[in-house]
Each structure stands twice: as structure tokens, then as C-alpha cells.
Design a protein around this nucleic acid. Structure first.
Length: 290
DNA sequence: TACGTGCCCAGGCCCGATCA
DNA sequence: TGATCGGGCCTGGGCACGTA
């Protein structure tokens, strides 16, 4: 790891080599911050429930940052946490090669993958977020992009030397707070569906330590996902995911419950019991308002 | 070893069509 | 009217090979 002073007073943090545990920010796991679609999305996400406000906007040139683009943020969070735990000084200004990032997030390293990584960085940089999360009052929104800026570095002959990026303060401070970070299963990077990925993050966030699992009403899940699909399509796609049981470490089920309608139940695979036979049956207990 | 190129195929979200 | 299906478009996976 090397350090030197950056013109903007930020110290450069050179990404750590080796295989790190993937870590994700809890706020990003339970709220609609990303497009779940593989095609370009321009329709904003406008999520307002209780005191939580989230507004995500895209620009026509790049479209909204997707849940696959968020893999770059998982890489960044993993690097920052690992560096801190090893006693190094992490920084919002990070340097790495595209190869290192692509390897970490389980992608290929073809030209297409390099170009898609750059496109992902463009989307992360151009997508703007306004949120009340971790603000003193819901009237005061924090506005930022997932990446403040990024650039490719090259030597005198134009040979690529990797890239540099600057993380936003909102994300960086969340990563540095232990309570706001969760380790995720590396198999997450193998999930190909956007809805599937979003569901894993939600389940990991809410059901990670709950021996008896958790339940969510489908209508609330639909709102939380930010998906543009109508509820009936969303429910259809969800049933497919439940049928495949493809989320690493969790078991899913759909139930019809009186007064609540269709609910999704999930539990850790070693938890063995669904919410239907537990004290947490019928409602989430995180204290958040759905 | 790290990085770059090119190609083909598979799979998923979204949207509109179809059906009961 | 709600549930299901299928195509379009786009992205991901995999592989072989080249280059510095």
C-alpha cells in the first residue's frame, strides 16, 4: 500500500491485494437505491415511508446506477473496512486496477467487462441521491452521488495504470461505522437476477441473525424494491425465486395470511424454522416503518 | 502475471399480449 | 380484472488467445 498527498488534501489509499470478505452497507441493503433492471432506467425512485425519504435520479446519457453497479461499492466498502481493521489509514480517495475490482466482484476481465466497469462508474457518478437517512430531520436531505469523481490513470505511453475514485462522505461514514456494515456471502456475486440480488440483500439485512426468520407483506416488498413492474408481475417473479430457492444461506416461502394477504417468509438455512411458528410471526421487529 | 480482445450463448427485467 | 406467458433488449458467463 502506498500513500501520497492528493491535490485536494485527500490521502490516496491504494487498494489492498488478496481475497477480502465482501461487506455491504446496511442502508443500501434495505432501501430502494438502485435500478434492478438490466436495461437503462430513467424513471426516478421516489420512496417515502414514515420518516424515510429516498429520491434517486438518473441522467439520460448514462441511466440509473444498477444493483450490479453497486458491486463496486461493495468492493470499496470491503477495502475500507479491511484496511481499518489492519491498522492502515483508509481514505475516500481510492486507487486500484480494473482487474482487481473485476476479480473481486466475480466478473470476467474481457474488454467488454472493462468497458462495462467504466459504464458502471459513469452511472454511479451521474446518479444522484437525496435521502433523509442518517440526517437530523426528514426535512434535511443529504444529496450526493455514489462516486464523487473517477478517472483512469496512464503512463507517458498511454499504458493503463488503473483508476482512481472518490467515495461520497455519506457512504464512507456509513462504512466506517461497524454497526452499519454486514458481511455478505461471496455467492451473492453469482446471482444474475436484479430482483434476486435485491432480495438477498434485504433478507441478509433483516434475517441475518434471526433464528426464526422474518416475514414481509408482498405489497411492502414491492414498494421497498423500487421495481417498475406492477405488483402482480412482481409477485409472479418473486414466486419464481421462491421456487428456485437460489438465495445463498436462506430458505424462502410464500404464505397467505389472514388480514396481511400474501407474505414472504425467510429464515437462515441452519435456522430450520419459518416465522409461522415463531414469536416474530406477522411483523418485522426492526423498529422501522415499512 | 496482469491486462486486453473477440465471439457466442444464456438469462433476466420490462412490457405488451393472451387467456380464464 | 387478474394471472400468466413470450419477445425485445440488454447484460452476464465462458472460453481461447494475444500482449507487455
Amino acid at each position: 500500500m502506498s500513500r501520497h498527498h492528493h491535490p485536494e488534501q485527500l490521502q490516496l489509499f491504494r487498494a489492498l491485494p488478496g481475497d477480502l470478505a465482501p461487506r455491504d452497507a446496511q442502508d443500501l441493503m434495505s432501501y430502494p437505491f438502485f435500478s434492478l433492471a438490466k436495461s437503462k432506467r430513467l424513471v426516478p425512485i421516489d420512496y417515502r415511508v414514515g420518516s424515510i425519504v429516498i429520491r434517486v435520479e438518473a441522467v439520460p446519457e448514462h441511466g440509473m446506477a444498477t444493483i450490479w453497479d453497486a458491486d463496486v461499492l461493495i468492493w470499496a466498502a470491503s477495502q475500507v473496512v479491511e484496511a481499518r481493521d489492519l491498522g492502515f489509514q483508509p481514505s475516500r480517495l481510492m486507487a486500484a486496477t480494473p482487474y482487481e475490482i473485476l476479480n473481486f466482484i466475480g466478473r470476467g476481465v474481457s474488454l467488454r467487462d472493462y468497458n462495462r466497469l467504466k459504464a458502471a462508474l459513469d452511472r454511479l457518478q451521474s446518479t444522484t441521491i437525496a435521502t433523509s437517512i442518517r440526517q437530523p430531520t426528514e426535512r434535511r436531505l443529504h444529496r450526493f452521488s455514489w462516486i464523487n469523481e473517477w478517472k483512469e490513470r496512464a503512463d507517458g505511453n498511454g499504458r493503463a495504470l488503473g483508476l482512481e475514485l472518490i467515495l461520497p462522505d455519506w457512504f464512507y461514514s456509513a462504512v466506517l461505522q461497524d454497526a452499519l456494515i454486514l458481511t455478505i456471502d461471496r455467492a451473492y456475486f453469482s446471482l444474475t437476477g436484479g430482483l434476486e440480488r435485491w432480495l438477498y440483500r434485504l433478507v441478509r439485512k433483516h434475517g441475518g441473525r434471526q433464528h426464526f426468520g422474518w416475514t414481509f407483506e408482498l405489497t411492502h416488498l414491492h414498494a421497498k424494491s423500487g421495481s417498475l413492474s406492477p405488483l402482480k408481475h412482481f409477485a409472479y417473479d418473486l414466486r419464481e425465486i421462491v421456487r428456485r430457492q437460489s438465495l445463498p444461506g436462506y430458505r424462502l416461502a410464500l404464505e397467505e395470511q389472514p388480514r396481511r394477504g400474501a407474505v414472504l417468509c425467510f429464515a437462515p438455512i441452519d435456522g430450520t424454522t419459518f416465522a409461522g411458528s415463531s414469536p416474530t410471526h406477522g411483523k418485522p421487529t426492526t423498529g422501522e416503518k415499512l
